[in-house]
């Protein structure tokens, strides 16, 4: 069935079910990359220029839209303004923390997602994916990823 009219909030609900392949706990909505939903198109903004997940995410969004009968809805990539971690939703922050990744704090604070200690030490600004830096907790000793402020 091909739907002809759908509300933006219904599209957001569909996209809430599409997850980032590298951080599957986050949906593309949580990540803040869905910038606009119009009658005929969804606009997305990639996180990093070289993020290998970008293509996979676009395909996943396509599949989800098709499955909802929205074959005619286009996916547009919008580069400007560039994505920023400020666009990660409050829900996204909660999910990241529960998943063991320290969310980006504009204050610069880094709390260990395991024990909550603030005694974290930067190991490398480049972690397992372009969006994460590697830290080690000074209290519990565990290494952890932190979403970079970007």
């Amino acid at each position: 069935m091909v739907k002809t009219a759908i509300r933006a909030d219904e599209v957001f609900a569909i996209l809430q079910q599409v997850h980032d392949p590298e951080i599957p706990v986050l949906s593309v909505v949580d990540l803040g990359i869905v910038r606009e939903v119009r009658d005929d198109a969804v606009a997305i903004t990639p996180t990093y220029s070289g993020c290998p997940a970008t293509l996979v995410i676009e395909q996943a969004i396509r599949q989800a839209l098709d499955a909802a009968g929205l074959q005619k809805m286009r996916i547009e990539t919008v580069l400007f303004p560039p994505w920023t971690t400020d666009w990660i939703t409050a829900e996204g922050h909660r999910k990241l923390e529960a998943y063991g990744i320290a969310p980006p704090q504009p204050s610069g604070a880094v709390l260990c997602p395991r024990c909550g200690s603030a005694q974290a030490r930067l190991v490398s600004e480049f972690g397992s994916t372009p969006c994460k830096a590697l830290y080690r907790c000074g209290a519990c000793g565990e290494p952890f990823d932190r979403f970079k402020c970007h």
């Binding site: 220029s49 070289g50 993020c51 480049f126 372009p130």
Partner: peptide
């Protein structure tokens, strides 16, 4: 290892920029 990850990440950023 950390250097390996960092250089690969920088390479990835640059390759992404090149694509655009």
């Amino acid at each position: 290892l950390e250097v390996d990850l960092a250089l690969a990440n920088i390479a990835l950023d640059l390759t992404g920029q090149a694509t655009l």
